[in-house]
Structure formats: C-alpha cells, structure tokens
C-alpha cells in the first residue's frame, strides 16, 4: 500500500500565543487554553501517515482537536506550524506551501469533505443536483449533459431519490442531506476523503445505512479516509488504525482492535470503559 499523506508536527493555536502556551496546555495541564495569554491550543504536534485505501480514525471528546486536524488538511483553516505532504503517483505536494490556486485544485479534485453540519458542505440555495454540478464545474467538467449524468449517477449511488434531485437539500431529512454531501464529496472520485462526525445526530437506522455506504465506497474505490468521531462504535466498524486525542494532543495511537481491547493511556481506558 502506497503512502498518500504524511502529516508532521501539525499545530494550530487560536489567539496570539505566548512562549508558555505549549507547556501550559495539554492532557497533563487538563486544559487547552493557555492561562498566561488566553490562546487556545487546538492541536499541537500531531503527526501521522495515511496509506491508499486506509481508513484512519481520529477519536476523542468534544474540544480534543480532532476536527481541527481535518479542517487544516482540507484548507478550511491555516495551521500555525507543521507540514503535510500529499503524495500522488507522479507528484508530491507540500500542502501548506502551495499557493491559493494550487490548494483549491487539491481541495476540489483530490480531496472530499463531509461535515457533521450539512450547511457547511452544501449550498442550500441551489438544488441537490446543482450542488454536485458546482463541484464538477470547479474541476473542469463543463458539458451540461455530462454533469447532469454524473450527478444522477452519484445520487443514485448514495441512494438519494432521483425524482428529488432538483429540490434544495433544505427540504431533505438529515440522513438524506448527508447522502447528498457524500455524493458531492465523491463527485471528482477523490483518493482522500475527510469525514467529520458524519453520523452524529442521526437516528440509529439511518446511521447504520450511512456507515454501510461509507464501507462500500471504500471497497469499491479504494478511497483513503480520515474519520473523525467520538463514537467508539463508528471507530470499531470503519477504521483499521486510530489516534486518540485529548486537549489537542495525540495521546495514543495504534491498531483499532488494540486501542479498544488493550488501551494504554488512562484517558483511553476511561473512554473505552464508558462505551455503552
């Protein structure tokens, strides 16, 4: 399996930061807010690799920084420091050294993102089909008929009723909105997909079908994924390896079955023990 992503020492601090931010935050300090300057150390020193077709889990409770990691990798935010290298068969990209146009190209053509909140991923002012068309247009497909066909194909793959593709996602249920988001993310057949709490807040039967869909897509297309979730069931079901985060730090990483059956860190033990 080829390595496609290499993240090294990624850090993101909200606020002006001070020389004591790092030592004053983290799991030992039991906070992510620096008591000296009030800055929030959202993530610090996060490093990991991702291989082709692999599903990596980022787990931890709210505020642990797990979403910040994917937001930085999707260029929704700019990291304070650190590097990420995206590796294609014929090219390597130092992601945070690219100019805005190059970053947009990666974001539109090579990455896909599914947010917990569909409002972030979808444009509610246009139809569901239009949402997909928008992404295809940004990645150089411009023939109307072709776009329409591709949108149909994607929506039927994610089991969205084609009879409703001309409606705004605003009229859809939560589960259906997530399906449109997944279809949109897949539009350019990206090798890397970020999934940020995609099933959180959906009812159980809808969750199950979304998770099945994600697994099917991974098997069909060999898409690598980074799955952000606080749900241990999702971690167990989807991922092969996982990172456990707390107050912006990775406190433990390993094979998913090992993290769940033989957690090493006190926090992970508590997390696993509190699973329903």
């Amino acid at each position: 399996m080829r390595k496609i992503l290499e993240v090294r020492n990624l850090s993101k601090i909200y606020g002006k930061g001070c020389p004591r931010c790092i030592e004053s935050t983290g799991p030992e300090a039991d906070t992510n807010m620096c008591p000296h300057c009030g800055s929030v150390v959202a993530i610090h020193d996060v490093s990991f690799d991702l291989h082709e077709g692999e599903i990596l889990g980022l787990m931890g409770e709210s505020g642990s920084g797990k979403s910040t990691v994917v937001k930085n990798l999707y260029f929704d935010q700019t990291p304070t420091s650190g590097s990420a290298r995206f590796i294609e068969e014929d090219a390597k990209h130092e992601m945070f050294n690219l100019n805005a146009a190059q970053q947009r190209r990666l974001r539109n053509q090579r990455f896909g993102m599914v947010y917990q909140n569909p409002h972030l991923g979808l444009n509610f002012g246009i139809s569901s089909g239009g949402n997909i068309a928008e992404r295809l247009l940004m990645s150089d497909v411009s023939h109307y008929g072709e776009i329409r066909e591709r949108a149909k194909e994607l929506l039927s793959r994610t089991e969205v009723l084609l009879s409703r593709m001309d409606e705004s996602p605003a009229a859809f249920s939560g589960g259906m909105q997530q399906r449109v988001q997944i279809a949109k993310a897949l539009a350019t057949n990206p090798p890397l997909l970020y999934l940020d709490e995609v099933t959180t807040g959906l009812d159980l039967s809808v969750q199950a079908r979304i998770l099945d869909l994600i697994l099917e897509i991974q098997q069909e297309r060999n898409t690598a994924m980074i799955v952000v979730t606080h749900d241990l069931g999702v971690i167990r079901l989807l991922t092969g390896r996982a990172l456990v985060m707390k107050y912006g730090r990775v406190i433990e990483s390993g094979l998913t079955d090992q993290i769940l059956e033989d957690p090493q860190h006190a926090y992970t033990q508590r997390l696993v023990a509190s699973a329903l």
């Binding site: 390993g254 079955d257 033989d262």
Partner: peptide, 9 residues
Amino acid sequence: LKGIYRTYL
C-alpha cells in the same frame, strides 16, 4: 494469541 496478533501489546 492476542499478543501475537497484536490485539494486545
């Protein structure tokens, strides 16, 4: 067995 399979460290 779990140690060999690395379900346990």
